[in-house]
């Protein structure tokens, strides 16, 4: 178990939990939560600088890019072109060429536009980006994304921020079985058992933001998620018992008093 390392886009990590930096009260809480989570990879968004705010602090003053792997996302992009532009800008900001690709298809559900995501991924892979695409739990979409050279696939458990947990474990199992790249469950995690469930299934990692930032005690939830991901991974590696319809006694059948 000590040697269980998470290899992603050519780098090795110990933590299989990836966390977002959105929805926290302030930068200080963001930093404390991330530390409590043990995450080594954190997602960020790409947005216009506030020109008029002269005393602005920057998120990266709290989340040190030398200590964490920064994963810019293309949140807010509804077309492949916007997402590609965002990735190019993010790369020039100088934290590397790892990107979380999101091309949203519907504002209400925040489900990805699968076709646009695949086409944008194709362009980005050609431009040398290491692409982690946020996608539906659609095995065919995941196969296509892996084939065109994405560094992982990131199927959703449920809509972003919904806290519903894994709604379709059967699809995720199929995706896991067919995967030639790491599978990271991204979006919809609600509480610790959801994260553990994903890891028990054999997923390589879990990405979450709202589940931690939106909890009543985000720091405690960050710790819970850290443990859940570790527990789920250990359980997966330990090899669970089979499910049986009938009972099999755990205590001896002999030596009973009469």
């Amino acid at each position: 178990m000590e040697d269980d390392r998470f290899e992603l886009a050519g780098k090795v990590f110990r933590s299989r939990l990836i966390v977002g930096t959105g929805k926290y009260r302030d930068f200080a809480e963001t930093r404390t939560a991330i530390e409590a989570s043990g995450a080594e990879i954190v997602t960020v968004s790409v947005r216009r600088v506030n020109i008029t705010d002269r005393n602005r602090e920057n998120l990266l003053d709290y989340i040190d890019p030398r200590r964490y792997t920064i994963l810019p996302n293309t949140a807010g992009c509804y077309t492949g072109e916007e997402a590609i532009r965002t990735c190019r800008l993010a790369r020039e900001a100088g934290v590397g060429d790892l990107v979380k690709l999101e091309v949203i298809g519907d504002q209400k559900t925040l489900f990805p536009d699968v076709a646009a995501t695949i086409e944008a991924a194709r362009v980005l892979v050609k431009e040398g980006f290491k692409v982690l695409p946020y996608i539906t739990d659609d095995p065919v979409a995941c196969l296509k994304l892996a084939e065109l050279g994405c560094a992982a696939v990131m199927p959703l458990a449920a809509p972003i921020g919904s806290g519903l947990g894994i709604r379709n474990p059967y699809n995720l199992r199929i995706i896991m079985e067919q995967a030639k790249v790491p599978v990271i469950v991204d979006a919809g995690v609600g509480t610790a058992s959801d994260a553990a469930e994903a890891m028990e299934m054999g997923c390589d990692g879990v990405l979450m933001n709202t589940a931690i930032a939106g909890a009543k005690d985000p720091i405690a939830m960050a710790r819970a998620m850290k443990l859940a991901v570790e527990a789920g991974r250990l359980a997966y590696l330990a090899g669970r018992i089979e499910r049986k319809l009938y009972g099999t006694a755990s205590s001896p059948l002999t030596g009973l008093i009469e």
Partner: peptide, 10 residues
């Protein structure tokens, strides 16, 4: 001209 930076996000 667009000038961007990184902010919190999931």
């Amino acid at each position: 001209v667009e000038i961007i930076n990184f902010v919190g996000g999931g």
